[in-house]
């Protein structure tokens, strides 16, 4: 049994790869546009691109999980709140309980697993609509964040030296340095979050492509009935997808926290939207069965590029990235529906 998009043959694969190509071209156009318009402000530096990666490291992990869930035809909108809960747990645990950083990270990952297990059970075995389940999860996580603390917490050197040093650790790249105003060569750098998120991306890519679990995700999303007839345990697969999503979301939460070094109740609001938008823009079909994390990566990059263009402009209102992302999402959803319509007609 191969992944659905490989098995369907050349003709239909073109439709799906076309979506991916559109995404990549769109990213290149956006980025090139940014370079041309804001080149004088330093948009062309390699660091600008790396900053997009640094600030979206958490989102990459979360979006990978979202892609897995969407492959099964479901959706998980609890991710944003779960990230907020993770950050709050990290900040509060290290600040008030004086736990060590690795222990808190393990606790956060465990919370993610349990959260995913409950959601997955409700979706897989109780057959409740994923949206309703994850909406309840979203409000639960957000509320639990408030239960832990309603204050704005930040992680400083005093709170936890280990976590602080992780957060401020840089890996300088050996190339692409830029001379600053004083004439000192500054090397572009990435942070630990980027490495984690790229590792996650690669692992998920391999899992989806080469493992039994990854292929069964595609099969369940393609057609639940045929998957069941092939002898797959549909319920279990669905549950695993939600566990994976929440687990990756917790990893994303740690990356997010490494980047912001702060926690508050209103943190990461709308992150679920960005994650869904990234996956959809990256060519993952909302009906399930089609998609891949490479597209999702480009979806995240497009999101980040829009945000950073708005940032470089400096005059645009802060609500513009939201509107633009929603417009892009709308465009891709309509595009997908048109493709689906054409496919139907061909039959």
């Amino acid at each position: 049994m191969k992944p659905a998009n490989a098995v369907k043959g050349r003709k239909q694969m073109n439709g799906n790869t076309l979506l991916l190509i559109i995404t990549i071209v769109l990213f290149v156009i956006l980025y090139a546009g940014g370079c041309i318009v804001y080149g004088s402000k330093g948009f062309t530096n390699l660091q600008t691109f790396l900053n997009i990666l640094i600030s979206n490291a958490g989102l990459i992990c979360v979006a990978c999980g979202m892609t897995c869930v969407m492959l099964t035809g479901g959706i998980d909108i609890s991710v944003g709140s779960l990230v907020a809960l993770d950050c709050m747990l990290l900040a509060y645990g290290m600040g008030k309980w004086h736990m060590s950083a690795p222990v808190m990270c393990l606790i956060v990952l465990a919370v993610g697993l349990i959260f995913g297990l409950v959601q997955g059970f409700c979706v897989g075995y109780l057959e409740i609509q994923p949206f309703i389940v994850s909406m309840a999860g979203m409000f639960f996580a957000r509320g639990m964040t408030a239960v832990i603390s309603t204050d704005q917490l930040s992680i400083t050197q005093d709170t936890n030296a280990a976590f602080y040093s992780w957060a401020n650790w840089r890996l300088n790249l050996p190339f692409g340095g830029v001379l600053n105003r004083k004439g000192v060569l500054i090397m572009p750098y990435i942070r630990v979050g980027v490495i984690i998120s790229l590792l996650v991306l690669i692992v998920i890519f391999l899992v989806l492509r080469y493992t039994k679990f990854g292929r069964s995700l595609y099969a369940v999303g393609g057609s639940e009935q045929s998957a069941a007839m092939m002898g797959l345990n549909v319920k279990k697969t669905k549950m695993k997808a939600y566990i994976l999503s929440s687990f990756l979301c917790s990893i994303g939460g740690i990356c997010y926290c490494l980047n912001t070094q702060a926690a508050s109740v209103s943190q990461a609001t709308g992150l679920e939207m960005s994650a869904i938008a990234s996956a959809v823009i990256g060519g993952t079909l909302l009906t399930g069965g089609v998609g891949n994390v490479i597209g999702t990566l480009f979806g995240v990059l497009i999101n980040g590029t829009i945000a950073s263009i708005v940032q470089f402009n400096g005059k645009l209102a802060s609500s513009w990235p939201n509107i633009l992302t929603a417009a892009l999402l709308c465009f891709f959803i309509v595009l997908q529906s048109v493709f689906a319509f054409l496919k139907e007609k061909k039959k």
């Binding site: 979203m138 409000f139 639960f140 509320g143 408030a146 109740v265």
Partner: peptide, 11 residues
Amino acid sequence: AVAPVFKAVVV
């Protein structure tokens, strides 16, 4: 801020 927890449970 905590109220959503109860609502989520009810849902």
